[in-house]
Computed example of a mutant assay.
Amino acid sequence: MKASKWLEAHAARAITVGADASLPEAAALFLENPEVRDIYVVDEYGRVCGHLGFRRLAGLLLAHLRPTHSRRQLVERVTAGSVREHMDEHVLCMRPDERISEVFHQHMERRIEDIPVVDDDQRLLGVIRVADLLRKAIEPVG
């Protein structure tokens, strides 16, 4: 199935944030939208320029709960900063005319739970949630 057809039938709201947003602001978006596992960072033109996953953000904001054993953990403990400083700039996106089966395995290997669908200008059209794909796969045929 092509991404465009999936989005028509199974629309999932994509959550975005500006690169200059604070980490607590991004965390608030996750808390307000508990089904969301990935936030997409967009530039001033609405183009996807980064990705911030729930686990990464939680690790940064909850670093004080872990004992400090390494330099990296110490740096994380004192880091606040903006989303831009902590986002993954390498976002695996798909186009509306691509088949989900063509990109699905890449997302699973990277442990990404949402597949962002973007237009030719890198603007986010929607997301395909892996959980929704799983729901559809186990749905009884009737």
Results as ranks from 00 to 15, higher is better:
residue 51 H to D: 11
residue 25 E to D: 08
residue 74 L to R: 06
residue 52 L to K: 07
residue 107 H to L: 14
residue 113 E to P: 00
residue 74 L to P: 06
residue 62 L to R: 13
residue 69 H to F: 01
residue 128 I to G: 04
residue 21 A to F: 09
residue 49 C to F: 05
residue 62 L to M: 15
residue 45 Y to E: 08
residue 68 T to P: 04
residue 28 A to K: 14
residue 43 D to Y: 03
residue 101 S to K: 15
residue 29 L to S: 09
residue 108 M to I: 10
residue 86 H to E: 06
residue 117 V to W: 00
residue 83 V to R: 09
residue 37 R to D: 12
residue 75 V to P: 06
residue 33 N to E: 04
residue 128 I to R: 02
residue 25 E to H: 08
residue 31 L to S: 11
residue 139 E to G: 11
residue 61 L to N: 06
residue 68 T to W: 03
residue 124 L to D: 03
residue 59 G to W: 07
residue 73 Q to F: 01
residue 60 L to Q: 07
residue 129 R to N: 02
residue 134 L to R: 09
residue 135 R to V: 02
residue 102 E to A: 15
residue 112 I to S: 10
residue 46 G to C: 06
residue 45 Y to T: 11
residue 23 L to I: 06
residue 55 R to G: 06
residue 88 D to Y: 06
residue 50 G to L: 01
residue 20 D to F: 13
residue 121 D to M: 14
residue 138 I to D: 04
residue 117 V to I: 08
residue 122 Q to G: 02
residue 25 E to A: 13
residue 48 V to T: 12
residue 110 R to H: 13
residue 110 R to T: 01
residue 76 E to Y: 08
residue 41 V to S: 02
residue 124 L to A: 03
residue 62 L to S: 13
residue 64 H to R: 12
residue 128 I to P: 04
residue 20 D to H: 14
residue 73 Q to T: 03
residue 67 P to E: 00
residue 100 I to F: 11
residue 80 A to G: 12
residue 53 G to A: 10
residue 109 E to C: 10
residue 81 G to C: 06
residue 24 P to M: 05
residue 50 G to D: 02
residue 106 Q to M: 10
residue 123 R to Y: 00
residue 141 V to P: 02
residue 92 L to P: 00
residue 106 Q to H: 15
residue 82 S to K: 14
residue 62 L to D: 02
residue 118 V to A: 04
residue 107 H to F: 15
residue 79 T to D: 04
residue 80 A to H: 12
residue 51 H to N: 11
residue 110 R to M: 12
residue 110 R to F: 02
residue 119 D to E: 00
residue 82 S to M: 11
residue 59 G to A: 10
residue 76 E to R: 12
residue 22 S to G: 13
residue 119 D to N: 14
residue 20 D to V: 10
residue 102 E to H: 12
residue 107 H to P: 02
residue 134 L to C: 11
residue 81 G to W: 01
residue 88 D to Q: 13
residue 117 V to E: 04
residue 107 H to T: 05
